[in-house]
C-alpha cells in the first residue's frame, strides 16, 4: 500500500515538473512545430526507447540474481572504499540541518527522476534526433556497466559501514521513502553511484545542446552537482562511488556519441526498429477483419 502511494506521488511530482520544464525550457514555439511531424519523431524515438526500456527491465530482473552472484563471488570492497577516503562522508554530514536534509532528499528522489527523464522528452523537440539517440545510448551504457559492477562487487554505503558516525539522514526525516528506495535497489549496490553517473551524463549532454536549450544547461548542471553531493550528504554513497560514477558518466557520453549515428537513416537501432514496427503493423492488419 505505502509503496503504491510512494510511486503515485513520484509519478505526479515528476509529471508536473516535466510539464513546467517543457513550457519554460522547450518553449511554445518548438512545441507547435513538433505537431507538424510528431508521428515520425515519436516513431524514430520509440526504437531507442524500447531498447532502453528492455535494458532497464533486464536490470530490474537481474538484480536479485546478481545479488546471489555477488555473494558467491564475494568481492567485498566496502572496507577498501573506507580505507581510500576515511571520514569524508561524516565530515560532510557535519553540515546537516533538517531543512538542508529535506531539500537534498527531495532533489535526490524527485529531482533525479526529473533530470533523467527530461532529456528523453525534450530532445524529441529538437531539429535533429541525434541528441536523443546519444542520450538513450549513454543511459544504456551507464546501466550495463553499473549492473556489471553491482554484480561483481559487494559494497555497502557509509550509512551501513559507519553507523553511529554516519546518519541515514533521509530516512530520519522521510521514513516513508524507504519503501521506495529499497524496492528499487539493495543496500549492497553502492559502487559506483548510478545517481551521479546519470546526473553527470545529463549535464554533459545539456552542454552539447546548450545552444538549443540554454536554460536546461544551467538547471541540469545545478541539479547534477546537487545530486552528486546529496548522495554523500545523505550517507548513501562514498566519495569514491561519486568520483567513479562521474567517470562512468563521462565515459558513457563519450562512447555513446562515438556509437550514435549521425542521422536517423544511418542509425541501426532506428532502422531495425522501423522494420520491426512495420512488420508488426502488417501482421496486425493481416489478422484484423
Amino acid at each position: 500500500m505505502t509503496l503504491l502511494i510512494q510511486y503515485l506521488q513520484l509519478v505526479t511530482v515528476v509529471t508536473v515538473c516535466l510539464g513546467v520544464g517543457l513550457y519554460t525550457i522547450v518553449g511554445p514555439a518548438r512545441i507547435r512545430s513538433f505537431y507538424v511531424d510528431y508521428r515520425t519523431r515519436l516513431c524514430h524515438g520509440l526504437a531507442h526507447l524500447s531498447v532502453l526500456g528492455t535494458v532497464f527491465g533486464i536490470s530490474m530482473y537481474w538484480r536479485p540474481i546478481g545479488g546471489e552472484v555477488s555473494w558467491t563471488l564475494e568481492y567485498n570492497i566496502t572496507h577498501t572504499l573506507y580505507s581510500i577516503e576515511g571520514y569524508l562522508v561524516p565530515t560532510i554530514q557535519e553540515l546537516a540541518t533538517t531543512k538542508l536534509t529535506w531539500a537534498l532528499s527531495l532533489v535526490y528522489v524527485f529531482g533525479y527522476v526529473f533530470l533523467v527523464l527530461f532529456p528523453l522528452v525534450s530532445y524529441l523537440f529538437l531539429d535533429t534526433l541525434r541528441p536523443f539517440r546519444v542520450t538513450a545510448l549513454s543511459y544504456i551504457i551507464n546501466y550495463l556497466i553499473g549492473l556489471g559492477s553491482y554484480t561483481l562487487f559487494i559494497a555497502y554505503g557509509p550509512r551501513n559501514y559507519m553507523p553511529g558516525e554516519v546518519r541515514g539522514l533521509m530516512y530520519e526525516v522521510w521514513p516513508e521513502i524507504e519503501a521506495l528506495t529499497t524496492h528499487i535497489n539493495t543496500n549492497t549496490n553502492v559502487f559506483p553511484s548510478l545517481h551521479t553517473s546519470l546526473a553527470v551524463t545529463v549535464a554533459l549532454l545539456a552542454w552539447y545542446t546548450r545552444d538549443s536549450y540554454p536554460r536546461w544547461f544551467y538547471l541540469a548542471s545545478a541539479l547534477a552537482g546537487t545530486i552528486a553531493f546529496s548522495t554523500m550528504y545523505l550517507g548513501l554513497h562514498w566519495g569514491t562511488d561519486v568520483v567513479t560514477g562521474a567517470a562512468l558518466g563521462i565515459t558513457s557520453v563519450w562512447a555513446a556519441s562515438y556509437l550514435a549515428a549521425e542521422s536517423d537513416e544511418q542509425s541501426r537501432i532506428t532502422t531495425t526498429g522501423q522494420q520491426l514496427f512495420a512488420t508488426a503493423g502488417d501482421y496486425i492488419k493481416q489478422y484484423r477483419p
Binding site: 541515514g168 530516512y171 530520519e172 522521510w174 521514513p175 516513508e176 524507504e178 529499497t182 543496500n187
Partner: peptide
C-alpha cells in the same frame, strides 16, 4: 516490515 529503525519509528509516530 521496514528496513531501518528510523523508518520503524516514523511509522509509529505517524500512527500507522
Amino acid at each position: 516490515i521496514v528496513r531501518s529503525d528510523d523508518a520503524a519509528l516514523g511509522l509509529l509516530t505517524s500512527g500507522s
